[in-house]
Design a protein around this nucleic acid. Structure first.
Length: 302
DNA sequence: GCGACAG
DNA sequence: ATCTTGTCGC
């Protein structure tokens, strides 16, 4: 996102809130305090100007035969390449750039744990750019503190991306979090970019209705429960939704997705975005492709 | 003390 | 998340 040496912008990633960098060296208590402050800065209402229809993927990417090629965009009259998402077509009139981020991990065979972060930029349902970064992991996974383990790796991959994200799709929760500061919220606030979190299991909160055996398209609100300290005062608060993105006709075995606002997106619009980004598979296309790319990058690194 | 917990 | 082949079902 931020080419090194670009004088028009600040440092790496052009952070809007560097004070919230997920420093792994902080104590557990400090991490939690930082998350409370971060949540107070986050916006769980629509502030993006993106129409869900504008980010819809009609056809799922074919991943059986490798990753789809990144469509390189060319300038109007020359053979000069333009920076994805920043060329003449960028701006108000162009379709939004959705960036999916996901990670794969290198097992501690002999060295230290390392994360392979992948970022995939998509516009009009087509991949326009891939970027990845391999980063050492300093702390283990702790429920509720995922951003302190995977945040920096994610930022590194986003930093390697030239395209400017209009919407980030993160693997993990956003507002569905003990302190309403999941990794999607953390990264969204740091960059001040609209973001949504997509998780495959529920961290906290309570679904209005049981989620088992639901047809594709079904959804139910997730409300704060006593595990959500921030909103404990009013358990009516909708912090996200369970969304059944895929289901088989006669069998009901696919679990729903748990989607929640990251930053600058409302709970309702978050579901609309995810619904538009899903193209037949359980995971939204940006996440699916980023997942495949992370695995590929991991293979190349091994 | 017990339970529960994104990736 | 990761270690992993075949296999039951649509």
């Amino acid at each position: 996102m931020t080419p090194a040496g670009d004088p028009s912008r600040g440092g790496p990633n052009d952070l809007a809130h560097p004070e919230f960098l997920p420093d792994p060296a902080l104590s557990r208590t400090e991490m939690q305090s930082l998350q409370r402050e971060l949540a107070a800065t986050a916006t769980f209402a629509d502030d993006h100007g993106i129409d869900p229809e504008a980010v819809a993927s009609e056809e799922p990417a074919d991943l059986t035969d490798g990753l789809p090629d990144a469509r390189r965009e060319t300038a109007p009259d020359g053979d000069q390449e333009t920076l994805p998402g920043t060329g003449p077509d960028a701006g108000e009139s162009a379709s939004p750039v959705v960036v999916g981020v996901d990670q794969a991990f290198l097992t501690p065979d002999d060295g230290e744990d390392r994360a392979v972060s992948a970022a995939v930029a998509i516009r009009d349902g087509e991949v326009i750019e891939y970027a990845s970064a391999t980063t050492p992991l300093s702390i283990p996974y702790v429920p509720g503190l995922l951003a302190f383990r995977e945040g920096e790796p994610m930022l590194a991959a986003l930093d390697a991306l030239e395209a400017e994200p209009d919407l980030l799709v993160c693997d993990g929760s956003g507002r569905i979090h003990f302190r309403e500061a999941g990794v999607a919220t953390h990264v969204g606030v740091l960059l001040d970019v609209p973001s949504v979190g997509v998780a495959k299991s529920l961290l906290c909160g309570k679904p209005d209705e049981p989620t088992a055996e639901r047809p594709a398209g079904w959804r139910t609100p997730i409300r704060a429960d006593d595990a959500v300290e921030t909103a404990a005062s009013d358990s009516e608060t909708v912090i996200g939704h369970a969304y059944q993105s895929r289901q088989y006709p006669n069998s009901r075995r696919v679990n729903p997705l748990y989607v929640s606002p990251g930053h600058r997106v409302s709970p309702g619009t978050t579901v609309e975005f995810v619904e538009a980004l899903c193209a037949g598979y359980k995971l939204p296309e940006p996440t699916r492709i980023a997942d495949a790319y992370a695995d590929a990058a991991k293979r190349d690194a091994t």
